[in-house]
Design a binder for these strands. Structure first.
Lengths: 197, 197
DNA sequence: CTATTTTGACCGACCATCGTTCAAGTATTA
DNA sequence: TAATACTTGAACGATGGTCGGTCAAAATAG
């Protein structure tokens, strides 16, 4: 036997090594050669770890999302009011701290829309269910405290799609100038309707 | 001077000539040569009318959207209840009749997310404001009839983003099985909350 | 009316680039 | 040394995009 490299770790290293480049120019505007150079490996080696350029963005999203999820989980526990928890949850779409992940996520969404990839589908599905679970727990708390009417559940789940859509619109149109205001406002309206008084 | 062709018309002809191919294989999986062949012109001629492949999808979206908007405008006037009008408005995202436009729209969204193009941004912005205008008119009617509370306005505007987001999710995850049910349900919930009784 | 020139449309051979492959090479361990 | 694991960049093939040239219609000149 000879060297055994940790394939998963090396994938991560390569992806992270090209992160800056992908953020700056977008995956469609950079070449495999540039990627190899940025990651400090040979062109052929890239193909030992990734089938194509798109998969590198996928790997990056997975890494950064996982990190993000950890932070978010900690963050959520800091808030006491249900409303603030929900707002904090969706802050991903506008806070400056998540700017990089957001850009990668944008590029990843473009990829997901134009190719069909089982792994990507499964990843996105898992994310969806994870977030749904979180949100359910948050809401449940509010309902048990008698802060909220039980009917809020499905409405709040709709905020997932709303926030995603608003984000896409903010990128693809000039019509949405203040995404945070848009999202927070929607959450406030729903909570105002659903608060037990 | 020599022959003068209607450039705009020819652009449309070329785009429509490749529609089937783009629907079948996706713009990323076909070559300019294939496009030229499908449109019955030489490869060089494609570049007389389009800067690149993406612009052909853009042209197609413009053509089909315009057509779609005409039909939708007529369709909307057929419904009497505000709720049905709103539901009909968003049926674009699931009805079988709009399947083709939806596929083109999907590919176009991927393009819009990965490149920045002034013209595309403006087009999407115009669409957004047009639909907003329509929706405002529909809602206004309901408010004046005393069917609806005035507060519904902003909530319904949120449905735009919701529907867009739910559509994206239905394509990029396995979590959304019945998009129509999801959209209709959200509309029903909002209307139930906002109906004057 | 005919010949000549001008012009716009059209085209496909050509070029440069880039994704992908693979045979050769290097490093490590037994 | 030999076997194994991994790396690599030259080479290949495909494709997006360019460009010089052709053609036919229209304008103009004679």
């Amino acid at each position: 036997m000879a060297i055994i490299v940790d394939k998963e770790q090396k994938k991560k290293d390569i992806a992270l090594g090209t992160k800056a480049l992908i953020l700056k120019d977008g995956i469609n505007n950079i070449t495999i050669s540039q990627i190899a150079k940025a990651a400090g490996i040979g062109k052929g080696t890239v193909y030992e770890y990734f089938k194509n350029k798109d998969e590198i963005v996928f790997e990056l999203v997975e890494i950064l999302m996982q990190e993000h999820n950890k932070q978010k989980e900690a963050e959520l526990s800091k808030f006491t009011s249900t409303r603030e928890k929900v707002k904090s949850f969706f802050s991903f779409f506008y806070i400056d701290a998540d700017k990089e992940l957001r850009e990668i996520y944008k590029q990843f969404t473009a990829i997901a829309l134009s190719s069909t990839n089982e792994d990507m589908l499964n990843f996105q599905t898992e994310c969806y269910f994870l977030y749904e679970k979180w949100m359910e727990a948050i809401i449940q708390e509010g309902i048990q405290n008698k802060e909220l009417k039980p009917e809020i559940k499905e409405l709040i789940m709709g905020i997932f799609a709303f926030a995603q859509g608003a984000f896409i619109m903010s990128v693809t149109t000039n019509a949405i100038t203040d995404l945070q205001q848009k999202i927070d406002n929607q959450i406030d309206m729903l909570f105002d309707l659903m608060e037990e008084r």
